[in-house]
């Protein structure tokens, strides 16, 4: 992920700051030193010494350096803060759920962490519009949901042409009785042909060239959402764009673990043969 810590000015800023310190040191060292008692420089020698300091300052671009030190320190600090935030986002994103039990998490938070991590994917291709509604925390496996969001955002970004800036819109909301939350990821990209719409969740289905991606993203995402008792649907128009909608329950069925498929459990409960 070469681009997650990218900043135009870090880490080069640090090596530049070091260079600037070298310059300051050289200039300081070049100042005329106090002489032993009784052997003062005469005024001509003193002036020559000062002139050579001035010449050194010119050669080392001291005025420019002096003016640049403070902006450079601010930019370095800013870069470091950005790195700290990205690390925090990565930690949030990949919250390792060791026991694989339901946890309470906020989808908006997960979306924001995920967006920060992949911002470079769409930064130059699309404007991001966030329309996030305050949401109740929901019972889920947060790292798995973040994986789904990552998949949808990256797909959306890859559908958009680098030629003209598209629009990536992310909306969230909650239904009237606060039993369901939903997330929409919409792009203004190339769209999906109607005859392919029912294939996109198939494992290994992909519109990309051989060697580009596994074609597993959406099928894995589909599985995750299904195990959450939710749904993932798509609407698309060729040449205009695509919208994915994920709906998730706020509360999971008691007694149902994240690893079990809802359809399997429901089938067993109804004593129906298991649906593949």
């Amino acid at each position: 992920m070469k681009s997650t810590t990218q900043s135009l000015t870090w880490p080069p800023t640090f090596s530049t700051l070091k260079k600037y310190m070298d310059i300051y040191e050289q200039i300081l060292d070049a100042q005329p030193q106090p002489q032993p008692r009784g052997t003062a420089l005469n005024s001509e020698e003193f002036n020559l010494a000062l002139e050579s300091v001035l010449a050194l300052k010119l050669k080392l671009q001291y005025d420019y350096v002096k003016g640049d030190v403070h902006p450079l320190m601010s930019e370095t600090l800013e870069g470091l803060e950005r790195v700290q935030n990205i690390i925090q986002d990565l930690k949030n994103f990949s919250r390792t759920d060791t026991q694989l039990t339901w946890q309470k998490a906020n989808i908006n938070h997960g979306l924001e962490s995920t967006l920060n991590i992949v911002s470079h994917e769409f930064k130059y291709k699309a404007e991001l519009v966030l329309d996030l509604c305050p949401l109740p925390d929901i019972e889920c496996v947060p790292s798995q949901l973040n994986q789904v969001f990552l998949n949808l955002i990256v797909n959306a970004s890859q559908s958009m042409d680098e030629g003209h800036k598209g629009l990536l819109t992310i909306r969230t909301g909650v239904n009237d009785d606060a039993s369901l939350v939903w997330v929409e990821v919409q792009d203004t990209g190339c769209g999906i042909a109607p005859e392919n719409l029912n294939k996109i969740f198939d494992p290994f289905y992909t519109s990309k060239a051989i060697g580009q991606g596994t074609g597993l993203g959406l099928s894995v995402s589909h599985g995750i959402i299904q195990r959450h008792g939710g749904s993932i649907t798509v609407k698309s128009t060729l040449g205009q764009g695509t919208r994915f909608k994920v709906v998730l329950p706020v509360v999971q069925e008691p007694g149902l673990a994240p690893t079990q498929s809802h359809t399997q459990v429901q089938a067993a409960q109804k004593s129906l043969p298991e649906q593949p």
């Binding site: 135009l8 000015t9 080069p12 530049t16 260079k19 671009q61 420019y64 640049d68 902006p71 450079l72 930019e75």
Partner: peptide
């Protein structure tokens, strides 16, 4: 301006 500053800094040095 950030880009100009970054470019200037490196090229001047």
């Amino acid at each position: 301006p950030n880009i100009l500053r970054a470019l200037t800094r490196f090229l001047k040095m």
